[in-house]
Design a protein around this nucleic acid. Structure first.
Length: 295
DNA sequence: CGAGAGTCCTGAAGGC
DNA sequence: TGCCTTCAGGACTCTC
């Protein structure tokens, strides 16, 4: 599945890819980074400096979380779910990083920077800090023993899980006229395929993004499902591609800029065929593709 | 039901 | 140099 054959890359025709949002690989990287800092820790206090995110942070969040022990950190799509408490005291902290959010562990006492909206103070003199300049993220409270919430109700399968396949895409797409790129970005079809990885995956599968979803064959959907898996897996393995406001869970602002095959490369040479990458708009969103490699 | 548009927000980038 | 405008994007919400 042809995603990145690093050895074949042409050379550096690009300066700095400007990627920014946390997509599924970034969220998974955040989860993995948070786990060792968080599991088994007791939350002592929650400081909310700015509650106006995508939805307001519930006013009772501090009361609900205080004294609870974090048992696990789960992920569903791009939502992080902190499993806190047990039995009748069960509950989950639901977090979404939006397009500019990050969550990282630092020592207690460090002064907050601009846009550091929430601190969760732990019992080991550390804290988890939520930073989100654009405030498209979310922090919500789910009471109960299971993470049940309207935001999670209608989500499609995990792209790296067993239920996701070309067959699934094929079945769900019959009769649908919207473009395949918009189709795979719909979280009810499959979660976690954001704008960057949608373009990258379609390139990997050699599928032109404007084709109607309902007119693509089973075989091509097999290739596309494989490309989505490969693209996301590679990004997770690389630690999550990143961008300027992305900060890893350990507080390092580092990103290793992952190089893209088509995203943000309009007018540049295709890394595979030497054609020219094109940019178009689909559903008020930018799409990049190679007209020669993708048909 | 599906499709398309609107919405929130800030910072970067471009124009003059 | 600095102000003003435009744009980007996740994903819910609304309209047709």
């Amino acid at each position: 599945m042809a995603t990145t054959a690093l050895s074949n890359l042409k050379q550096t025709d690009d300066t700095k890819p400007r990627l920014h949002m946390p997509e599924l690989p970034e969220v998974e990287t955040t989860r993995i980074g948070l786990l060792p800092k968080l599991v088994g820790r007791r939350i002592q206090r929650v400081v909310v400096r700015e509650a106006r995110l995508r939805w307001p942070i519930p006013a009772n969040i501090s009361v609900e979380l205080k004294g609870r022990v974090v048992r696990d950190v789960l992920r569903r799509g791009k939502y992080l779910l902190w499993d806190v408490g047990t039995g009748t005291q069960g509950g989950f902290l639901l977090c979404h990083l939006g397009m500019s959010g990050s969550m990282f562990a630092i020592p207690a006492g460090r002064a907050p920077d601009k846009h550091d909206h929430v601190d969760l103070l732990l019992d080991d003199k550390s804290l988890i800090r939520y930073h989100d300049p654009r405030r498209f993220g979310a922090i919500l409270w789910i009471p109960g023993k299971t993470p049940t919430h309207a935001l999670l109700d209608n989500l499609g399968p995990e792209p790296l899980g067993q239920e996701f396949s070309g067959e699934h895409l094929f079945q769900r797409s019959r009769g649908r006229s919207l473009s395949v790129k918009e189709f795979i970005m719909n979280a009810q079809i499959v979660v976690g395929v954001g704008n960057i990885y949608a373009s990258e995956s379609l390139f990997g599968a050699g599928v032109k993004p404007t084709i109607a979803a309902g007119r693509i064959s089973k075989g091509r959907y097999d290739a596309l499902a494989g490309a989505i898996r490969a693209t996301l897996s590679n990004a997770i393995a690389a630690g999550g591609s990143s961008l300027r406001d992305y900060v890893q869970a350990d507080g390092q602002p580092g990103y290793f800029q992952q190089r893209t095959m088509v995203y943000d490369r309009a007018g540049k040479r295709c890394r595979r065929c030497d054609g020219t990458i094109r940019a178009i708009r689909q559903g008020q969103r930018s799409t990049f593709f190679c007209p020669r490699c993708q048909t």
